[in-house]
Design a binder for these strands. Structure first.
Lengths: 193, 193
DNA sequence: TGTACATCAGTGAACGCGCGTTCACTGATGTAC
DNA sequence: TGTACATCAGTGAACGCGCGTTCACTGATGTAC
């Protein structure tokens, strides 16, 4: 049956949100359209009324997931600078929170195998995250050097969280050592001339 | 038909090698047992004569992939120290070489969703890679600090290559900027007191 | 404001397909005599 | 060294299952008069 424009928009949003969470938890290949529709309280047919394909939904889900992850990072940056960003991103809490965590760390190595639209979303998210980091770096540094460091710190954050998650199942202590080591090293990297 | 012990061992090896390459190229979930068997010149039945399950093969494939990736890294470390390691690992060539490249960067974010045996293999590979890096760091640094930096550098390498690969499809210039930025930053990190 | 009707979001059965795994069978290997 | 036979690596058909996607249909929405 038809549904009001308003309700339809809500349903679309629910699909994107469910997909975003499930993709982070189980990977894009690991989740089916049936799982997503069910989590959103709809049938898979409704999904195809809203999106052309699973890939199209994935691109929108990644976009939403990236933008959500930027909010607490921006807040940390504004309130406590680089140190607060590192504390937030490299905390065991954020590491263990696949469902709500950063989509870049959750999907980094999968993105390369998806459609170009997914790559574009990732690139945008990475760029925006690097800009947030860059704003926390010392003003004395040349602009070029600040951008370089911000990009490097962003990539390191992703690597540290992904690696920490990868070893967490077999060696939780090592998992914590990895994020703690990154915490120390990146503070140095951001702080020095 | 039965086959000599020697031939059987060769077949096992061929399955592991094919799986290792295909998993890196297309992800563990993205490759079927039929693809792997075919690439090794066998049928899927032969795969199940050698391995208990796809996961068991995946663990052995990851192990082999990690050990192979360590060889050129160790060589670079011995010949040119940290700088040569960074040049090798962060080169566009290594970034574009999914089939032959490092299994950690290729699978980082997927590992967290696999069996614990896969996590164990990853942890071992990460530890050995960090040890290679650690050996290139200045002897004057306290041992604790060297280990910390080596772990951080290893995580950063993985993140930089994974991120570079993720954006390569949509923005090749940005992809190169990421590995170049990491190259600079990690040299600093390794070189300073 | 009230009525007639076109629109279209959502349902659920059905599609072909490839997945991981099992198993009866084959026949060369390698062992026991 | 030669023969008889148990072993078992490898084959290929078959298993149930879930995948992404399509489509005829439903019926409330929202528009035209």
């Amino acid at each position: 049956m038809k549904v009001s424009r308003e309700k339809a928009a809500e349903h679309r949003e629910a699909l994107v949100t469910a997909a975003s969470r499930l993709f982070r938890e189980q990977g894009i290949d690991g989740v089916g359209v049936a799982d997503i529709s069910k989590a959103a309280g709809l049938t898979h047919g409704a999904l195809y009324a809203q999106f052309e394909s699973k890939q199209a939904l994935a691109a929108e889900a990644l976009s939403q997931g990236l933008r959500r992850a930027e909010v607490p990072m921006k807040k940390a940056a504004d309130e406590g600078g680089l140190g607060a960003c590192l504390d937030f991103y490299l905390s065991p809490r954020q590491r263990d929170n696949l469902a709500g965590g950063c989509a870049m760390a959750a999907s980094a190595s999968e993105i390369a195998r998806q459609d170009v639209s997914i790559s574009t979303e990732f690139a945008g998210g990475f760029e925006r995250m690097a800009a947030i980091i860059e704003a926390t770096l010392k003003r004395e540094l040349p602009q070029k050097s600040r951008r370089q460091r911000a990009i490097s710190i962003t990539a390191s954050l992703i690597g540290a969280v992904a690696a920490s998650r990868a070893v967490a199942k077999s060696d939780p202590r090592f998992a914590n050592e990895i994020i703690a080591a990154a915490r120390h090293a990146l503070e140095r990297l951001g702080g020095e001339r």
